[in-house]
Design a protein around this nucleic acid. Sequence first.
DNA 1: CTAGGGTTAG
Length: 494
Amino acid sequence: METLIPKISTKKTNFFRSRKTRKFPLLPFKAKWQQNFDQQQAMETLITESTTTTQNPNLLSLLIDSFTKYKCDPTPSAYSFVIKTLTRNSQFDQIPLVLNRLEKVEKFDTPERFFINLIKLYGDGLNQIENAVDLFYRIPNFRCVPTVYSLNALLSVLCKSKQGLLMVNQVLLKSTEVMSIRLEESSFFIMITALCRIKKFGYAIELLHMMLAEYGYEPDYEMYSRIFMEVCERGDYDEVMGFLEEFRKVGFVLSGENYSDLIRVLVKNGKGKEGLDMLYRMKSDGMKPDVVCYTRVLEGVISSRDFEKAEELFDEMLVLGVEPNVYTFNVYINGLCKQNKIDEGFKMVEYMEKLDCKPDVVTYNTLIGAVCKVGEVKRGKEVLRMMGLKGIGGNVHTYRILIDGLIGKGELLEACGLFEEMSVKGFLPRSSSLDAVIARMCEQGLVGEALKVLNKIVERNVAPGEKTWEVLLCESKLDFNDATRNNFERLVGV
DNA sequence: CTAGGGTTAG
């Protein structure tokens, strides 16, 4: 009988012998196969046991028992299964025990994926950042060489909370110096995104520079764009323009979305002309601005009172086939009203209807505001009535615009009527409008009327402003009834 | 390939 240990190195011929003449089976192979088979059996036992036994079984014991029964070693996937099941059963307190055994007893190399999943679980699911960091440091004890993938998983977790961000520095230091993990572009992307989210653009930009200077990584468009979007989101003009310069200096072309964000910032900062320039630039970069871009720029030129440009833009849209929508029309009508071309504004409404672009409450509020401004409050009220017929209700602004118009004309009783109407519809009047009316009414000796209105409004839990109290307290001959007094006192908290 | 975003008034 030949020995069971083949002398592979010296007797190569053993391997090339035909099946029939081979004196012994390829034992190492067979053993491996046998072990796989046993492990598979053990795994199946583990799975069935864990689902059929009582609630919250001791999974670690089950794992050990199953594999002992088949006289084989547990596998990484058995451990993954246990962790997954513990997670599903919320038996988080058992995880450390499982980890301890994996670390101290098992001999196999644990796959990195195992730790990445656990880090995510600790960080995102359990909010146990400390545990995520500890596990990351412990990875080498599990016969696993941590790479940038684990580091990135940890960084993502850390970057999600303030507490975590404070630990980033220490983690970076240790992982590069002690664990010799080299940061990759993806690591920078994670950190830059996180810094943008907490509005630390200065640090984000610093990291961008560091990537290139210290690691030789060229930041890509995505990184610049990300920072740019966030900087635009905050809307600080100087900050945006500063970063825009850098964005362009490295040679990237802005996307349509970048332009749209940029134009928004310019317009919101009163730079209508610059917004218009950006629109030109966008076109010369080969992009077709969409209706939102046009509407933003239109708003910009109108608020800088460049009405000629507004006309041009509007025409250009039509020529280029960019269909104006209700936002565009509202902005445009607002421009007409600013020029006191109120009738043209009303004409636009008809035009909109013809184009099947339904005017909305904003459209009508703009026009009502315009007619009120020139003293035609009656016409404004008529518009409100007409809106109702078209099924468009006024909102709290509609009423405020009309009421302010009426107050301006001294038509106080009528203003009171609108107060009532709006509170019936569930809109709360601003206390300052209310104050103005009450004060003026008292001045004109309409104290009784004022109280009547006030009582109705106060019933709806609207507290009048200071001025009302001032005026009413000055009126010595005031004659509160009990209900009114109670309401007042409740609202003032006397 | 495309959704969303963008409007009045104080």
